[in-house]
Amino acid sequence: MTLKADVKLDAKGLVCPMPIIKTKKAMIDVNEGQILEVQATDKGSIADLKAWAESMGHQYIGSTEEDGVLHHYIRKSGDDIGLEKNFKNTIANEEIIDRAVNGGIILDVREEAEYAFGHIAGSLSIPIGELEERLEELDREKEIYVICRTGTRSDLAARKLSEKGFKKVFNVLPGISYWHGDLSKKI
């Protein structure tokens, strides 16, 4: 399956260090928070791209393999931990599963690829960039627990929902990066 990426790089047929060099160059045209997909056939690129992303402060999301081609997903400068959060109504990671059982919605506003590589079972995926045009998918009567990786995007999304008249909105902190339970995959 193909996951949504903002920029795609074809590094097929190239060997080390070329996939890394091409990735470095391609990343220049990727905006902060966007996703770069690197297609490669070099098996070493799995470990290399992961290490490269970590060293550069980007978020390595994951890799898939299809017909001998590796698809690596990296989110640019994904490290937004510690940014100021403004939305007052927050809820802890540990509480949302029990609360959602009583009819709440866990809304995951990360990008599709991030969701695919690990999400809370039963959560709804609407990337933050699509939130405004997909509001009708949300039930205004239900409690909505907005979650992302570190609580920054979900803070923004929670504020947006609140502006649009949603009354029972919570920002989930600290977010998926500190999730201790199981995560489901969709790849």
């Binding site: 080390c16 260090p17 890394i20 470095k24 490269w52 550069m56």
Partner: peptide, 11 residues
């Protein structure tokens, strides 16, 4: 040159 370019690509 592999090490050098890989290092440069990692800034």
């Amino acid at each position: 040159f592999n090490i050098a370019t890989a290092a440069a690509a990692t800034e």
